[in-house]
Computed example of a mutant assay.
Amino acid sequence: MKHRGRFEFLHEFGENIVGRNFDLIKKNLISLGYIVNCFETASEAANYINSQIDNQTVGFAGSMTLEKMGLFESLSTHNQVFWHHRIPEGKTSKDVRLEANAASIYITSVNGIAESGEIVNIDGNCNRVASIFYGHEKVYFVIGENKIEKDYDSALYRARNIAAPLNAQRLGVKTPCAIKADKCYDCKSPERICRGLSVLWEKPMTGEFEIILIHENLGY
């Protein structure tokens, strides 16, 4: 199966990811209490999510994965969706973030996930990591196979040294990592975007959590 962007990703980061088998990570995630569904393409995953959520309030995290999948547009036709990437006239980014945090459903990606099941996210405003932990009836994690690492230490390394620098560069912030997007410099910059870290060792006690694994490289 041909994966979009695979060779560019392998060349840039030197990773040896060739058609990951999801059996192990799916088994481990189910044992930790998550619902898990796997899809070959982002389009198939987007259609599935769109079919599962109807007439709900839905919060979106800041995510290039969700942006690429077009989920905001499809879900907005039959749900009330709040995303600070799409700010309605008369509202502020803060307004939309608060509405997203109060929604029944929350959708996010991750910065790193271990095959053993640990889920790692790094955040600047921390609205995303706060929403992941508590307050919604259901949380969806939408994850491309490029986010998967062999263990917790590797997932944490990925979040800090791959995902965060690439996001900093995309946002155009003035941090050392944004210059080459090569690694975390543990800087003290006023524009630093890695200010809060969340780790789920297993599914929280309240609410439903569903993990969508996709056989494509998506987001950072």
Rank of each mutant, 00 (worst) to 15 (best):
K2H: 09
F13R: 13
N16A: 12
I17G: 04
I17Y: 09
V18E: 15
G19S: 13
K26N: 06
K26S: 12
N28H: 13
L29E: 05
F39T: 06
T41W: 05
A45C: 04
I49Q: 07
N50V: 02
Q52D: 11
V58Y: 10
V58D: 06
G62W: 15
S63P: 07
K68D: 02
L71F: 03
S74I: 15
S76A: 10
T77V: 10
N79W: 06
N79Q: 03
H84A: 05
R86I: 04
R86V: 01
I87R: 15
K91Q: 15
S93N: 08
L98D: 13
S104E: 15
S104C: 06
T108Q: 11
N111D: 08
A114N: 07
A114R: 10
V120P: 05
N121C: 12
N127R: 02
A130D: 05
F133C: 11
F133A: 13
Y140H: 06
F141Y: 15
E145T: 08
N146S: 12
K150N: 11
S154N: 15
I162Q: 12
A164F: 01
L171Q: 12
K174I: 01
C184D: 13
D186M: 00
C187V: 09
C194V: 10
G196H: 07
S198T: 11
W201L: 11
K203T: 09
P204C: 01
E210N: 08
E210K: 14
I211Q: 10
I211A: 02
L213E: 07
L218I: 00
G219H: 11
Y220R: 15
Y220W: 15
